[in-house]
Structures are given as C-alpha cells and as structure tokens.
C-alpha cells in the first residue's frame, strides 16, 4: 500500500533547493563542451567565454509551468565548479536563504528556522520533478570536458553546428548534443539535448548577448523541455550583472558564510 503513497509523495514534491542546485551546475555546463582538433578550438573558445576562473553573478530565474510562473532572484559567487555560494534575494519570503556547495557536499541555511542543514547525498541525488533539469546536471563532476567528442556537422556564414557525442565512459544521460555557436561572438546560440533513441529531450537557448564585465555574454538562457510530462514548462535565466575573473573572498566558501551572508 505504501507504494502508491511513496510514489505520489516523491512525485508531488519538488526537490528542495532544486533551483539553487541546478544553478550551481548550469553556469558551468557549456564549459564542458570540449572537443578535439578544429572543433576543439571552437569549443574551447566558447568555454573560455562562458566560464571565467571565478564568476560573480546577479540573476533572475523565471520558472514557468503549465500552471504558474514564478520568479526568483539570487546572487551567486563561484570558483570553477568546485565551490559556489548562492543567496536568494527575491521573493522577499525567501530572502536570505543561502546555499553552499563545495565539491559534492551541500548545505542550506534557512533564516526562518535559523538552521544550517547538510543536504544528504541521497537527497542531492533525487530526481527533481518540476524543474526542467535532470539530476545529471547536478551529479556531473569537474571532468565534464572529458565527456564529449565534438564533430563539426554544418557551417554557414554565421554559425557552426557542432555535434557532441558522449565518450563511452562518460557519465552523461544524453545520447547526443547538438550545439550551434555564433561565429561573430564565439558564443553558444542553442544546445539541443537528445536521448539515446534520438528524441529531442530539451533545448537550451542562449540569447540577448550583452557586454557584461570584461566580455560579451548571453544574458538570457531559455530551457525548454520536451518530455510529455513537462509540456508547457519553461525555465528562463536572466543574468542582470556579471563579473568574471575577479577575486572572491574565500570566506564565502565556508559554512560560517551561510549565516553571515544571509542578511
């Protein structure tokens, strides 16, 4: 009898902190698009552009489901994809909720209960219904650059179209990725994620390229899932401020910071 109840419970839930979690990873996802030979150079440049050694971002996340649209705002500080610190600034009800992720350990601080909670690994590994990101985005490690083999499949005056196939031992769920890169800015335009059977699972679009900090940067990322169950869902990330390769106080990446920088 518990089976139904359990399935339902898991289903009805959205993993706590999922949004913040996926952010930790999302920022660095394109950085992984690494390849060999000619294409490798393209991917490398894309990676360098999107990914600084460090990044300080202010961003909004707009999550649309078939039912509601919800906006969150947050500040993010990160060094590589080893360490990151996130603080929720909007909506006011959630203001001051902080997350710290060091490698694969993660903590959350909730001002309302004045408590730092270490999120257990089993929880971090949960699937997150309700967001358009799979746990794979979360679980991946810093070695993603090893994960795909790049191949140029088309090219026109404006764009390269690059196919990325996961290497046999790469721990990625996708069967194939297809990415377009603009020639002018050497920035990604779209990334299509396919499953093993070749069905399109989701699309990530990078739009509204602006000057941000020391570089041109896509300031609006749109993730569209195509799974039947996620029909109508959309997740948009708008980066309002960004600074790259700036020094970040190491203090952010300590457990003390969760409470200290919560205000």
């Amino acid at each position: 009898m518990n089976k139904t109840a359990t399935d339902r419970a898991q289903g009805a839930s959205v993993l706590m902190a999922s949004c913040a979690l996926f952010l930790c990873c999302l920022c660095f996802m394109p950085a992984s698009l690494h390849a060999a030979d000619d294409v490798q150079e393209i991917i490398k440049r894309v990676e360098d552009r999107l990914n600084g050694k460090t990044a300080v971002l202010t961003l909004s996340m707009i999550i649309t489901t078939s039912r509601t649209t919800r906006t969150m705002k947050m500040d993010s500080y990160s060094v590589g994809n080893e360490k990151s610190f996130i603080k929720i600034t909007y909506p006011g009800k959630d203001y001051g909720i902080t997350f710290l992720k060091i490698k694969d350990s993660m903590w959350q601080y909730v001002p309302r209960i004045e408590k730092v909670i270490k999120i257990p690994a089993s929880m971090m590994l949960q699937s997150w219904m309700g967001t358009d990101f799979t746990n794979d985005d979360l679980v991946r490690e810093s070695s993603i650059s090893r994960d795909y083999e790049a191949k140029l499949i088309a090219e026109n005056n404006d764009e390269y179209e690059i196919e990325l196939l996961p290497r046999p031992d790469a721990a990625v769920v996708w069967g194939r990725l297809v990415m377009t890169v603009t020639k002018k800015d050497m920035l990604p335009a779209t990334a299509n994620y396919f499953d093993e059977e070749g069905a399109l699972v989701r699309t990530l679009q990078y739009t509204e390229v602006k000057q941000m900090g020391d570089r041109l940067y896509p300031s609006r990322w749109v993730m569209t899932p195509y799974d039947k169950e996620k029909a109508g869902n959309l997740t948009i990330i708008e980066i309002t401020e960004a600074a790259f390769d700036v020094p970040i106080d190491e203090e952010y990446f300590t457990k003390r910071a969760l409470k200290r920088f919560s205000d």
């Binding site: 690994a121 590994l125 679980v139 490690e141 721990a171 769920v173 069967g175």
Partner: peptide
C-alpha cells in the same frame, strides 16, 4: 542496451557517477 547513469556517494563522501 540502453545507457544508465548510476551515481552514488563514495567513501570520500563525494558523489561519483558512471555510465
């Protein structure tokens, strides 16, 4: 024949994954 990504917490308390 399908791919399955399996991940788990390792003895170093970090999450590792394998395809």
């Amino acid at each position: 024949g399908r791919k399955l990504i399996v991940s788990a917490q390792n003895s170093e308390h970090e999450v590792s994954a394998v395809a």
